[in-house]
Every structure is written in C-alpha cells, then in structure tokens.
C-alpha cells in the first residue's frame, strides 16, 4: 500500500518542477503581457508622433474604444461558455436606429434609450432561446440574428442615417456623473470591474467557466447549464445594445452600418485578451485590454499615417502574438 502511493508521488514530482508558478500573477499573465504590449505600442507610436502620448490623444483612444470595450465584455461572456455571438454588430446598429427613430417620433431620451435597449433584450433572448431550448449551434443562431438585425437596421429608416433630436442626449456618453471622469470611461470601468468580480469571485461566474469547460460535466454536477447560456446571450446583446446607445449619444447620429465592423473586432478583442473560442477561459480585464489594443493599433496607424489598409494586418499580427503567448505559456498535453 505504501509502495503504491510512492508511485503517484514520483509522477507529481516530475510535474512540480515544470508547472510551479506564482498563482495570482500566473492567472493574469496574458493580461500583463497585453498591457505591456499596449504600452510598448504607444511608446513606439510616440517616437514618430509625440502627440500620441498627449492627454488629448489618450482621451481620444478611450472614447474610440469605449463602445468596443463594452461590446467585447458581452461577447466575452458568451465565449467563456463556449459559444459565439455574431449578432452584436447588428444589434449595435439596430439599437442606434431604433433610439433615433423613437426620438424622431417625439420620445424623450430616457424612453428612446429604453426602446433601444429593448432591441438588445429581444435579440439576446432570441439567441438564448434558440441556443438552449431549440439546441441550435451558436454560430448558426447568431448568424441568423446578425442577418435579421442587420437588415432591420436598414429597414426601419430605409437606410438613411438619423440625427438625434433630444438636446441632452449627449450627456449619456460625454457627461460626467463623477466630475473629471467622462461617463463612457466610467461605464467601461464599472462594467469591467463588476464583470471581473462576478466571473472570479461569485459562484455564478465560475459556472460560466464550468459550462464552457465542459457542458456535459457541468450538467452532471447540477449546474444550470441552459440558464447560464441563456444569460450569456442576453447579457451579450444587452451590452452590444448599450454600446450602440453610447455611440449614438457620442456622435448624435444613428447609422445603419455603424456596428458592421465591430463584431469581428469584439471577437478579436476577446481572443487577444486570452479567451479561448473553445470556451472555459478568458477574463473581463483581458477583453478590455484586447479592445484597447485594437483601438491603439488603429490610432497608431492613423497617427503615423500608414495606409489604413495595413490596420487589418497589424491587428491580425496582434491576435497571432496573443494566441502564441497563451499557447506557449500554457502547453497542452498530448
């Protein structure tokens, strides 16, 4: 009996030398790496264009990144459960159009915003129901709602862009509930901290990871798999909706194509932030940093004046780098 236990000790000794790493830093290693990469990127751009490091430009980056950050946080929840949400860009656009339309027909800012967020609620619920109750593949389900919400965004105003009438609506994005911190930044921080807290410290957050890690095992353990998945899709759509609202509040104009390019960016942000599209991994901080990274690349390319066609390639390289870092710091067994 004692001999047998010795047997297991050796296998573990072998492993100890390979895997022992400080736990907290190790669990945030991807985030630390991206944060460092962002700083390096900013400094590099700053060498060409000193203004890149000015307060003004940093504010620009935050403002440009805010909608993407919020959308990425939603997509992250879905990705953690092992799903994917392709509909966020369309929901983003449709929210803007519905909000603008509501205002144009006389609704005040609050009512119009509620109408906009209802778009997120409805499409999130549709996604959630089709994935959980009907049991369709998330890719297919959200491809459908991507197409439907996208076309509705054109239908509601016949493709025209809509100016915003309500005079105080800009306050949503640019006002300062806490003096000195513009609302869009505040929203990003609050949402990121709240989500990170729930995902790491609250049981329900761990259930998201459990479901994405192995839905079958999670079910055997009595975790409410379907409810968690449903919640993920609703949250994703709602956050996309909110991001759309914020953008409309910022530019005071709603466009049917507004979110078209954001969906892939949000997925990229989540992946850069260390999430696996197979589910079970990822963090809110990572997703936010991923979104910042993408925005910084765009900003840098613009400031230096490189042909903007290169943006995609640079972003692609960043994704590759992030994934490689993750891969090599975290080798799988065969």
């Amino acid at each position: 009996m004692t001999d047998a236990t010795n047997g297991t000790t050796t296998t573990n000794k072998l492993r100890t030398t390979r895997f022992r790493v400080p736990a907290v830093l190790f669990s945030y290693r991807t985030e630390v790496a991206i944060a460092a990469a962002i700083v390096v990127l900013l400094l590099a751009v700053g060498m060409f264009v000193p203004a890149a490091l000015s307060m003004g430009n940093l504010q620009n980056i935050i403002q440009a990144a805010a909608p993407l950050i919020i959308m990425s946080l939603g997509v992250l929840l879905v990705v953690v459960t092992g799903g994917i949400d392709l509909s966020v860009g369309s929901v983003f656009s449709l929210t803007g159009m519905v909000t603008a339309l509501a205002m144009a027909s006389g609704a005040d800012g609050l009512t119009a915003s509620a109408a906009g967020l209802a778009v997120g609620l409805v499409f999130g619920s549709i996604n959630g129901l089709l994935v959980t109750v009907v049991g369709l593949a998330p890719f297919v389900v959200t491809l459908i709602t991507y197409a439907v919400a996208g076309s509705l965004a054109f239908i509601v105003t016949n493709g025209r862009s809509m100016p915003i009438g309500a005079p105080d609506f800009w306050l949503l994005n640019s006002g300062e509930i806490i003096p000195g911190i513009p609302n869009h930044l505040l929203f990003c921080i609050v949402l990121m901290v709240a989500l990170e807290y729930v995902l790491r410290k609250v049981v329900v957050g761990r259930w998201f990871y459990a479901v994405g890690s192995s839905a079958i095992a999670a079910r055997l353990l009595g975790i409410p798999v379907l409810r968690i998945k449903f919640a993920a899709y609703v949250a994703s759509s709602l956050l996309a909706s909110f991001a759309g609202l914020l953008t409309v509040s910022y530019i005071l104009n709603a466009e049917a194509t507004a979110g078209a390019s954001l969906m892939l960016q949000a997925i990229a942000a989540v992946v850069i932030g260390g999430a696996s599209l197979f589910g079970g991994t990822g963090s809110a901080i990572g997703a936010v940093l991923g979104a910042l990274m993408i925005t910084c690349i765009q900003n840098g390319v613009n400031l230096i004046g490189v042909n903007s066609f290169w943006q995609g390639s640079v972003t692609g390289a960043a994704i590759l780098l992030a994934v490689l870092i993750d891969r090599f710091s975290n080798k799988n067994r065969i």
């Binding site: 609250v202 049981v203 259930w207 990871y209 095992a217 353990l221």
Partner: peptide, 21 residues
C-alpha cells in the same frame, strides 16, 4: 465529469456553493 479548464480545487469546491450568488 471534470471541468477541464477549472482548477482541481474548483472542480471539487464548485459543488459546495449554497447558491449561484
């Protein structure tokens, strides 16, 4: 029925939650 991405401690501890919140 293990959750591959979660730590061993969590794999055991996750069934001990009183509620999701």
């Amino acid at each position: 029925a293990l959750l591959p991405e979660l730590s061993v401690a969590e794999n055991i501890g996750i069934v001990h939650a009183r509620s999701g919140w």
